[in-house]
Design a protein around this nucleic acid. Structure first.
Length: 638
RNA sequence: GCCGAUGUAGCUCAGCCGGUAGAGCAACUGAUUCGUAAUCAGUAGGUCAGGAGUUCGAAUCUCCUCAUCGGCUCCA
């Protein structure tokens, strides 16, 4: 937590971590017996003890002062919600109710279902509790006594939580507000009256303890902020995000469709979507060739025996499609690795040949559960920018570093920030401990050598090896998993891949699986939402629309359009008999970067007048000058 | 797959207690030839997701199936 300097009431300056409360600050400088209701003067402003220091040195209500404060506030609201629910629906059992990134939730076991009308009633009851300003009282109890307490009240979920605590825990804390008691570690706000802005959002099913074998509980989501203004800002931001939804923009910009006649999770790309996709794929091929990859291509279906040998049949069968050809079982590929290994195996390899980098825009099919499908972001057929690198253990570090450099370049070009995670061995996995150790170290060392910050995600690796995940952050700060590097020592073993070393002996290569953008479909979905459909010029399927003012300008308009297309500018013409304002409006809604208005002036001077998407007019330009402008920007990924 | 909600014209949505379908935009036709976010008029468009049932009669009530949306679990 960042330290900030503040001025104390006595005029002295001192440093405290952001989020520290006024009470803590005063107590640390000797004040005693401060009650929450006491007020003090900071920077000339009279504030109560529940205020705290923000990162920029301001004194605000503690909830707004820091992330921690906001979490405490939201967690307290979730207790108030649980109280309201149990008031209104006797017999409902409570499970857990934490604060989360955007608000809070509480899970309930209720034999009926909560409706939208119920949410409104719960909100009303919560407002009553808030207006009573009941204080949150902390109380500690021996664990056994707490178990008895909750068992007597039939709160079986709380009992289970208490029973599963580590053995050494002998005391637990309870919080009570207005007669409602909950098992809770705390902390909480002093009293319910501090709650000023909250809203219940929706109800959803959720498994008890996140396990699909357990009972399905009902989860009520809500959010809360220190002020009404912040809550309103949040709600408008949610509305804005909806306008960027790639499924909505996909239709509005005529990019793609998911059609239930075709089948769930299967995407049809329309001309503009397919063009956007082609632009990305062309970029991929060029970048891979530049970096020493070979472009390869495998078949869509491979015999069942290969999948048994690779381990996919044992570990991935429920996600695969199978078909029978001439009484033989074939698996439709869910991954691209096998063909790449067979290319490697097609001849004897020397250490001088390594590393070998096989790249494929590989289309795969995965039988995803219907409930997880989500537009372009989660489909049943998708195309990965997949590569498999076969190298010696000594080359591993340099190869991994080169890939992280590739990801970094890609993220810069597509204008994303990103975070890095290292995922280690999961419970369901294959391979020896030594191999896992070696592979995990190789990944970790490469990150350290590049000086990259990363977090460890224990137990989240693939079944055949550990991985580095890159989570990109879009314009709305949402995170998406796209690039990943996976270290695999198992498949080279299973397929008996070897190379002849300098010593004349046969050795086992290591294999890296990696994707840069991940799946083209998912990446496009993220791109659409990131840019809100207003793609940079180099990615725009239509870079310029030529618009005529009247019919007599059509011949010159067609001439301009032809010149643009011949020069490689992606252009369209709007020569309809409509008013210019109407055409501009459509061009704006289609988010076309340039609109070229053709009227008498342009015909006469043989120029174009480009209007940018942001409304700015560039004035008259000769056609070759405009072409140069577009092509230069395109080359610079602008 | 699980919990809940939803499915009416290309899109956004009306359609009450069951009496046989409507608007705006888009499309099409005509008029208009116009300079930077919507010109006017007219026309056409629907097995009310699909199937079964209740009823004299179903978009509306019941059941089943499919799909979508919000979550959970899983994941590129």
């Amino acid at each position: 937590m960042k330290n900030v300097k503040i001025q104390l009431p006595d005029g002295k300056r001192a440093e405290f971590p952001a989020g520290a409360s006024v009470k803590t600050i005063l107590e640390s400088s000797g004040a005693k017996g401060l009650d929450e209701a006491v007020a003090a003067r900071f920077n000339g402003k009279l504030v109560d003890m529940s205020h705290g220091v923000t990162e920029d040195g301001k004194i605000e209500p503690v909830a707004a002062a820091s992330r921690d404060g906001l979490e405490v506030l939201r967690h307290s609201i979730s207790h108030v919600m649980a109280q309201a629910v149990q008031d209104l629906f006797p017999g409902v059992k409570v499970a857990i109710g934490p604060s989360i990134e955007e608000g809070f939730y509480y899970d309930f076991d209720f034999k009926d279902t909560f409706t939208t009308e119920d949410l409104a009633r719960i909100e009303e009851r919560m407002a009553e509790i808030v207006s009573r300003d009941d204080s949150f009282e902390r109380r500690e109890l021996p664990r056994a006594e707490a178990i008895r307490f909750f068992r007597d009240r039939g709160e079986i979920y709380k009992v289970e939580l208490l029973e599963d605590l580590p053995e050494e825990v002998d005391t637990v804390s309870l919080y009570e507000q207005g007669g409602y008691v909950d098992l809770c570690r705390g902390p909480h706000i002093p009293s319910t009256g501090r709650i000023r802005a909250f809203k219940l959002l929706n109800v959803a099913g959720a498994y008890w303890r996140g396990d699909e074998k357990n009972a399905m509980l009902q989860r009520i989501y809500g959010t809360g902020f220190a002020t009404k203004a912040e809550l309103d800002d949040y709600l408008t931001a949610v509305e804005e995000a909806k306008k960027r939804d790639h499924r909505r923009l996909g239709r509005e910009l005529d990019l793609f469709q998911v059609n239930d006649e075709v089948g769930p999770g299967l995407i049809i790309f329309h001309p503009k979507g397919a063009l956007l996709r082609t632009i990305i794929e062309d970029w991929e091929r060029k970048e891979h060739l530049k970096r020493g990859y070979d472009i390869v291509q495998g078949p869509q279906i491979l015999k069942g025996d290969l999948w048994k040998r690779s381990g996919h049949f044992d570990h991935y069968r429920e996600n695969m499609y199978f078909t029978e050809v001439d009484e033989e079982l074939y698996g439709i590929k869910p991954m691209n690795c096998i063909a790449h290994m067979l290319i490697y195996k097609s001849k004897i390899r020397s250490y001088r040949d390594l590393p070998l980098r096989y790249f494929e825009l590989g289309t795969v099919h995965r039988h995803e559960k219907t409930g997880v499908l989500h537009g372009l972001l989660r489909a049943r057929q998708f195309t990965q920018d997949d590569a498999h690198i076969l190298c010696t253990p000594e080359q591993l570090n340099a190869e991994i570093q080169a890939i992280t450099g590739f990801v970094d370049d890609a993220m810069r070009i597509f204008r994303f920030e990103y975070e890095v995670e290292l995922s280690t061995r999961p419970a369901k996995s294959i391979g020896t401990d030594e191999d896992w150790e070696m592979a995990t170290t190789a990944l970790e060392d490469s990150l350290k050598d590049r000086g990259m910050a990363y977090e460890v995600n224990a137990g989240d690796g693939a079944f055949y090896g550990p991985k580095i995940d890159f989570k990109l952050k879009d314009a709305l700060k949402r995170k998406w998993q796209c690039a990943t590097i996976q270290c695999d020592f198992t498949l080279p073993e299973r397929f008996d891949l070897t190379y002849v070393g300098a010593d004349g002996e046969r050795h086992r290569p290591v294999m890296l699986h990696r994707v840069i953008l991940g799946a083209i479909e998912r990446f496009m979905g993220v791109l659409i939402e990131h840019y809100g459909g207003a793609f940079p010029l180099w990615l725009s399927p239509v870079q310029a629309t030529v618009m005529t003012v009247t019919d007599r300008h059509i011949p010159y308009g067609e001439e301009v359009l032809r010149s643009l297309r011949e020069a490689g500018v992606r252009a369209e013409g709007d020569f309809r008999n409509e008013k210019l304002g109407y055409k501009i409006r459509e061009g704006q809604m289609q988010k076309v970067p340039f609109m070229l208005v053709i009227g008498d002036r342009e015909v006469e001077s043989r120029t174009v007048s480009p209007r940018q998407r942001d409304g700015e007019n560039l004035g008259a330009l000769a056609v070759p000058d405009f072409i140069r402008l577009v092509l230069e920007k395109t080359d610079r990924f602008e």
